[in-house]
Amino acid sequence: MSSVVVTRGLVKQYGRVRAVDGIDLDVRTGDVYGFLGANGSGKTTTVRMLLGLVLPTRGEVELLGERMPRAGRRVLPRVGALIEGPAHHRHLSGAANLALLDAAGPGGSRRTRRRRVAEVLDQVGLGGVGRRKVGAYSLGMRQRLGLAGALLRRPELLVLDEPTNGLDPQGISEVRELLLDLHRGGTTVFLSSHLLAEVEQLCSRVGVLDRGRLVLQDEMAHLTAPTGATVVDTPAPERVRAVLDGRVLSADGGRVVVRGADPAEVNALLVGAGVPVRGLALQRPTLEEVVLAAAGTSADRVERA
């Protein structure tokens, strides 16, 4: 499978601080890639380097198979981006903002501009307020307008930095549906976020950044694969321990973790011995557990040297 975003040994040094410390990203065609990391872990700097806004100290970036920032003029028209919150000209309408942005670079035909603007406004649910000045928009509406700007040229790759910031729960779920819809249509999505739940619900691959280093990069399915244990929900944990002696890995109230990757087999043993069972499930680690295990403390914490 071909790669859409590749970085090799990417480093960004600000004075003595290394914001990004040698990361090797690999985002493949058709991925919904979740780029996770605490605030200050270097996510935004990395995103800006992908788009050629910040120039790397060392290492290289390939976007859609071409070297950035050199090939920016060819590559970036095929990329839609939402970088650290939306930004628009407040004295202009939403539609005028999109039209100006479209006219500011290559790859957006003037003939189809009006139609494309109307389409993306409808797509993000702003069809009714496109002619109103952005100054009068709510935070959520601005976020939607930012997303509309990213979709204007039907990009092959969407780079989204915290796209659900400022949205209410309905808005978040709408954006999620929109992204999944685009993904089904063949768009690769690179989603940078510190919201684990958002990434867990959307993404097929995950990269975890911790203090400038990529500490984890894998398929979501691998990360949250069954651990080979079964979780038993029972009102009588001590009787489970008696029946399955030696196989109990841990017990926490009515929740007992038992070695064995076949819940049916565990169930048969327990029911055969007359132990009441309320529920059984394969144990899977949550993304949160995986991320916490891989990353250290929050990057906001600054310890004394």
């Binding site: 930004a87 000209h89 670079g105």
Partner: peptide
């Protein structure tokens, strides 16, 4: 200051 510079450059305006 308005934040629109990053969008212009990512558009890419050059």
């Amino acid at each position: 200051q308005a934040g629109t510079l990053r969008y212009l450059l990512a558009r890419p305006a050059g």
